[in-house]
Amino acid sequence: MQDSNIQLNRTDHSQSEPVIIRQRRKWLGAIASYLLLTVLALLFVAPIVFMIIGSLKPDSLVLTEAGTFKAFLPGQISFQNYRDVFERVDFARFFFNSLFITSMIVLAGLLVNSLAGYAFARLRWRGRSGVLLLVIALMIIPFEAIAVPLFFQVTLLGWRNTYIAQILPFVANAFSIYLFYTFFIDLPKELEEAARVDGASTLRTFFEIIVPVAKPVFATVAILTFLTQWGSFLWPLMVTLDEQVRPLPVAISSFQTLPPIQWGDIMSFGVMMVAPILIVFLLFQKWFVEGVASTGTKG
């Protein structure tokens, strides 16, 4: 047994060890894992806690306590920073803009991309495989690669500083189509057969038979689209000119440099900006995690 790899066999003995030693080792292993995970988790959440606690503190204290452990302790709680944000900028407007733009993209995207995914997966038509290949090829193009010419296009169309420029280009999405396609293609054929025999139209079959069983893929696409669009920064930075149509990410970047610079206010802005997604995330965690994991297995 103890032949060539002597330096490797430290744990090889586990087979022959008494049960008590093995259990103790398991215990120690678990404690070590928990310790390591706890230290890492504390480091991970520190910036988030710093932001939340800072948003509840008088501005001067945020500055002076940032370098001490008090940065993570609330002390006396005040909502003054939150009131300040609403007084200094039109936060409600930014929030509405983000919510409106993002929901329009998500809703229209779900409709348009699921229909296309269905057409690719379940219908026979000429040119199907060729067009599908093209759509898959388009997945390689990151948005950044087309931002500049798209900006040129939008300028020519006179769409700068509009909602439409922030919504329409992002509705059709090759990756969403692909996710729908891979989901629909695995559904059993019998699903539609009965409906077709009854003479139901393709569209009705889709909405009444397919959509109800496809909730997981709709949830995945909705979450991934929402996450990307809620955080979108480069594009609205280029196309928005004033606060009327400006979404939160661009708004916080200009709020950050708006004099007088007050850290507490900036943190309140941040908390209000991320709170909706954080709540949705904590409620629908399973969907988030599965959605993200599916990009790995499908990509």
Partner: peptide, 24 residues
């Protein structure tokens, strides 16, 4: 199903053409 399929895929395909392929 060419007709109905093209009808279903058209909105997405037109969008991809105008806002991905064309700018590219």
């Amino acid at each position: 199903d060419t007709q109905i399929a093209l009808g279903m895929a058209a909105p997405a395909l037109i969008g991809l053409f105008l806002f991905v392929l064309l700018p590219f």
